[in-house]
């Protein structure tokens, strides 16, 4: 048949692309979208509000970890903001992005067009998940960077005294801040996989987003109940706040590794479930 249509043969790529182009396009659609920009803006506002509040009030009183250190060293603004954002703001934005991933395409009617374009169903899932992971990193980096900038503007910046008592210079401290952002983003990857799976279950993106956020909150609630202690190490939020180990010298990588394995397990389980659900699903949206 293709021999009867020479133009098609000459115009087509000789090989099927791997999907990097589609991945880039997906990132473009995600980050050019107002909603994504608004969420990142809101995340950036967290450290800025913290920094301004402390600047205005002098930073006395009780508050989250690192809060008391901010007025001496602006580098702590980002870390404080991450601690503040971990329970709700970050999971909320990840829930929106991951919950929207497939259900959002279904609701705009673009899912059927992507599939007949054709992008294979597995490729679509992989690209959706990968861009949700990129968003996790973008979200935590946004908080950190906005925090560092706000801290630098409003407070003195200097060498940081680590939890182990050692002092590191500003460059090293910035690297640690970057590392912590990666750690927190990594902790959200399992949630992104859960959101992707929920997103394959429905054509209603808002429902999928809400359900994903509920999962994140439930996980944290269960993590606080002593009655569910046996469950704790398996909850996706188990390692969320354990990044203190990255503020020691030498760095203690055990919680980083624990976090990575736990999240990998969630990705494996919910990736498989997403595939099982989506690979043969009737797309009737």
């Amino acid at each position: 048949m293709s021999s009867s249509d020479p133009t098609a043969a000459t115009v087509r790529s000789p090989r099927r692309a791997l999907g990097w182009g589609f991945f880039l396009s997906e990132l473009g659609v995600l980050f050019r979208r107002r909603r994504t920009q608004a969420m990142l803006g809101a995340l950036a506002a967290v450290p800025i509000l913290i920094a301004v509040a402390i600047r205005v009030t002098g930073g006395d009183g009780r508050g989250p970890a690192f809060l008391d250190r901010i007025s001496q060293n602006g580098l702590f603004v980002g870390m404080t903001a991450l601690v503040v954002s971990i329970p709700l703001f970050l999971p909320l934005t990840v829930g929106v992005v991951a919950g929207d991933s497939v259900a959002g395409e279904a609701s705009t009617g673009t899912l059927r067009y992507l599939l007949v374009s054709p992008v294979g169903r597995i490729r679509l899932l992989v690209v959706k998940f990968a861009s949700a992971v990129v968003f996790c990193l973008a979200a935590t980096l946004t908080v950190s960077l906005a925090g560092i900038l706000a801290g630098a503007v409003l407070f003195p910046i200097g060498p940081v005294t680590l939890l182990s008592g050692n002092t590191v210079d500003v460059g090293e401290a910035l690297l640690r801040a970057l590392l912590i952002s990666v750690y927190v983003a990594l902790g959200l990857v399992g949630l992104a996989a859960i959101g992707l799976f929920i997103s394959t279950l429905t054509d209603a993106p808002v429902g999928a987003m809400a359900a994903t956020v509920v999962v994140a909150i439930l996980s944290q609630v269960l993590g606080q109940l002593s009655q569910t202690e046996l469950l704790h190490p398996f909850l996706p939020s188990y390692h969320w706040l354990d990044f203190a180990d990255l503020l020691r010298q030498p760095i203690d990588w055990s919680s980083f590794a624990g976090n990575a394995w736990l999240q990998l397990a969630y990705v494996a389980i919910f990736g498989t479930l997403s595939y099982a659900r989506f690979a043969t699903k009737d797309v009737l949206s």
Binding site: R12, S13, R16, A17, L18, G19, G21, F22, L24, S25, G28, V29, T110, Y113, L114, S117, P118, V119, R123
Partner: peptide, 9 residues
């Protein structure tokens, strides 16, 4: 965007 999804385009 839809064209980018087509691995052959």
């Amino acid at each position: 965007r839809l064209d980018a999804a087509d691995g052959w385009a």
